[in-house]
Design a protein around this nucleic acid. Structure first.
Length: 319
DNA sequence: AAACAAATCAACCGCAAGAGC
DNA sequence: TGCTCTTGCGGTTGATTTGTT
C-alpha cells in the first residue's frame, strides 16, 4: 500500500447474490485523515481486479505449505462461501490458492491502490487463510455449503425415485442426484448404503424364497415408503436446522446475503450523482457483474488514473 | 448410567475424462 | 500427439451420533 495512505475504516464487507460486491471501504491519505468529508474514497472493487492483477501484474500468490485436512471449521465455511460467491463455482484450485492470499506489491497509482485495497480486504479477519486443496473446497461446497441443498431425511417420493433410478442406472450416483434437486451424489450414496441396500437385499432374499424367478420391485418401494413415513413424522421440524450440526451461523450468513439482495442496489453512476462518496453513512456501491471467469472484457482498473481519480474524487483530481 | 453395537455422514482417496497448451 | 492440470465421480474410511441392552 502506498505509504501516503492509511486504511482508516472498513465499513462493511458483505455479499450480494448472485454475485458479491465488496461494499464500501475507506482510504484516507494520511495528510487528510482528519478531513473525511473531503478525502474519503469509496471503492467498488470487482473480482476482475484479482484476475487481471494475477495475469498482468504478476501478482504472487503465496504458497502456504501444508494444506489442511479433516473436518471444516465454521470459519472455513464462511470463508469458502465468501470466495465461491466472489469467483464462482469453478476454478477450485485457483480459489483455494487465492483465498490464502498474501501479497507484497509496490504501489504508486490509484488503480493499483484499489487493487491492493482489495487484497487488504481479502486479508482481513475473519477471512484469513483458507488452506485447503481445490478438491476439498469443491467437495465441501457441493456437498454441504451450496445454498440449494435440502436438509433432513429423504421423502418417501425421493426414496422411491432413488430406488427406481438405482435399479435403472446402478451406482451412477451423480446421475441419480441430478434427478433429485437439492440432494448430492454423496448423500444419495450414503443413504443407499445404509437404507436401501439393506432393504433391497432383504427384499431380494424374500423374493428369492417366495418366487425366485420374479423379484417384486414394487413391494420393496411400498415397504420402504411406509417405514420412511413413520420416520418422517417423528422428525421435529425445528430439529431440521440442528441437522446442520453447529453451522447455524452459515445459515445466518446466507440469510444476510438474501436480505442484502433485497436492499436497494445503486449503480455507480447513480451513486456518484447523489454524492455518496463523501458521505460516511452511505454504505454501498453495487455494480452487477458475473463471476470473474465469465466476465468483463474491460476491467475497471484499465481506466486512466486521471479519469478514475476524477470520477471518485473530483475535487482532489482538480486540486 | 455405562457399555456396546449400529447407523449416519463428512471427507478423503484414486482414477478417469476433458480442456488447454 | 502427448503432456499437464483441473474437475468430477464412485468407493471407502473413520469419527460421531443414536439406539439398545
Amino acid at each position: 500500500m502506498s505509504e501516503n495512505t492509511v486504511v482508516e475504516h472498513i465499513s462493511r464487507v458483505t455479499l450480494h447474490q448472485p454475485n458479491p460486491t465488496i461494499k464500501t471501504f475507506l482510504l484516507i491519505p494520511k495528510d487528510q485523515a482528519g478531513d473525511k468529508k473531503r478525502s474519503v474514497l469509496c471503492f467498488n472493487l470487482q473480482a476482475q481486479l484479482i484476475k487481471t492483477a494475477c495475469a498482468e501484474r504478476k501478482l504472487m500468490v503465496a504458497d502456504k505449505g501444508e494444506t489442511r485436512k479433516g473436518p471444516w471449521t465454521e470459519q472455513e465455511d464462511l470463508q469458502l462461501v465468501w470466495f465461491v460467491r466472489l469467483f464462482g463455482e469453478r476454478r477450485w484450485d485457483f480459489l483455494a490458492k487465492v483465498s490464502g492470499l498474501s501479497v507484497g506489491i509496490f504501489l504508486s497509482d490509484l488503480t493499483i491502490l484499489a487493487l491492493f485495497s482489495f487484497v487488504f480486504v481479502l486479508s482481513c479477519a475473519p477471512y484469513i487463510g483458507l488452506n485447503r486443496t481445490g478438491k476439498s473446497c469443491r467437495l465441501r461446497w457441493v456437498n454441504y455449503l451450496h445454498p440449494g441443498l435440502k436438509r433432513g431425511r429423504m421423502t418417501p417420493q425421493e426414496e422411491q425415485l432413488v430406488l427406481e433410478l438405482h435399479a435403472k442406472w446402478g451406482n451412477r450416483w451423480s446421475r441419480i442426484a441430478r434427478k433429485l434437486p437439492g440432494r448430492t451424489d454423496n448423500e444419495i450414496k450414503n443413504y443407499w448404503r445404509t437404507h436401501m441396500r439393506k432393504k433391497a437385499q432383504e427384499q431380494k432374499k424374500g423374493a428369492a424364497s417366495a418366487s425366485p424367478s420374479s423379484p417384486s420391485f414394487s413391494s420393496t418401494v411400498t415397504t420402504t415408503s411406509k417405514n420412511n413415513e413413520v420416520q418422517s413424522s417423528e422428525i421435529d421440524p425445528t430439529e431440521n436446522k440442528e441437522a446442520v450440526n453447529g453451522y447455524n451461523s452459515v445459515d445466518q450468513f446466507w440469510n444476510e446475503i438474501t436480505a442484502s439482495e433485497a436492499a436497494t442496489q445503486l449503480g455507480f453512476d447513480e451513486y456518484k450523482e447523489i454524492g455518496c462518496y463523501t458521505n460516511l453513512s452511505c454504505s454501498s456501491i453495487t455494480m452487477p457483474y458475473s463471476p470473474v471467469w465469465d466476465y468483463n472484457p474491460e476491467p475497471l482498473w484499465r481506466m486512466d488514473d486521471e479519469e478514475f481519480s476524477e470520477m471518485i474524487v473530483p475535487d482532489l483530481a482538480h486540486s
